[in-house]
């Protein structure tokens, strides 16, 4: 992983992304977190600016206070010290569908300019060239959380004009199409990528570049994007603070499970 030099701080790309994702969580919010970088982000937020955020995992842990990073959303590490140990039905039915989840974190292999995500397969669905695990809870989170934060590898082929399969619906075709499809709330608010941060225009719901990571330019990011990316409002991604890095490295992931 690239190490970025800075007069004050040195940090890795994974650390920058974890910090950027964590800053999307506000105090007192209900956060639905998936495996990997979302866990880093949620745990960091809980240990810094959002101590009262309620972290839930789809396998059944509600109100987790993580002491050790889990490697699965069903990991025993999500349970000890949690507010409640339940199951998938409680989390999906009574929390997510009922509208209790403020922010969901999801990721995928491909993402388009409306924040639709593919985590099912590449190529023809019936005869795929590459098969992935499938939706898991991602489709549900994308449909039913009040907003979603997406984590993505930023490469041209992973951000194409059209994705092969919509596992998790974003803003669909933009405009009012999400609502027209029958989805009653939600939609992606931000995409934290390996090169920058994308947000969505209010009415068209089309992605634009909000920031590019230090060391890159808006032009660099646009060149690595498979769809036309509006970079008019882009600035540099704010860097992690010394405190955030300290907590991330020493409290959140001292075992270097996900941190690089």
């Amino acid at each position: 992983m690239t190490t970025v030099s800075n007069p004050a701080l040195t940090y890795s790309l994974t650390e920058l992304m974890a910090v950027t994702a964590a800053r999307e969580i506000q105090d007192n919010e209900v956060v639905f977190a998936g495996t990997g970088l979302p866990m880093l982000g949620a745990m960091l937020a809980q240990k810094t600016h959002a101590p009262n955020c309620l972290v839930i995992f789809e396998a059944g842990a509600i109100g987790s206070r993580l002491r050790h990073l889990p490697m699965s959303v069903g990991d025993p590490r999500t349970v000890r010290g949690a507010a409640l140990a339940a199951g998938l039905a409680e989390v999906f039915t009574y929390m997510l569908q009922a509208g209790k989840v403020d922010v969901g974190f999801i990721s995928g292999a491909q993402i388009d300019r409306f924040g639709n995500i593919n985590s099912t397969s590449m190529g023809d669905y019936h005869h795929p060239s590459v098969r992935f695990p499938g939706s898991g809870g991602s489709c549900d989170i994308a449909c039913l959380a009040k907003r979603t934060v997406i984590i993505a590898q930023h490469e041209k082929r992973r951000l194409p004009e059209k994705i092969d399969y919509i596992t998790s619906p974003g803003w669909l075709n933009g405009g009012e199409s999400r609502k027209e499809a029958g989805l009653i709330r939600g939609g992606p608010s931000v995409v934290v990528t390996t090169r920058g941060v994308l947000r969505f225009r209010p009415t068209s719901h089309e992605a634009y570049l909000a920031s590019y990571h230090p060391g890159l330019t808006a032009e660099n990011v646009r060149e690595e994007t498979g769809f036309m990316l509006d970079t008019a409002d882009a600035s540099e991604t704010p860097i992690p603070t010394a405190e955030e890095l300290h907590i991330l490295r020493n409290v959140v992931d001292p075992e270097r499970i996900f941190l690089k």
């Binding site: 039915t93 569908q97 489709c139 549900d140 449909c143 669909l172 029958g182 989805l183």
Partner: peptide
């Protein structure tokens, strides 16, 4: 989806032929 499959199990457990949800619209 996970919620979809769990809903399907719930319907079976409850002795119902199906259950309604609000998930998956717009997706493949």
């Amino acid at each position: 989806s996970n919620f979809g499959m769990v809903t399907r199990f719930q319907a079976g457990a409850m002795g119902l032929p199906f259950l309604p949800t609000r998930t998956a619209f717009g997706s493949d």
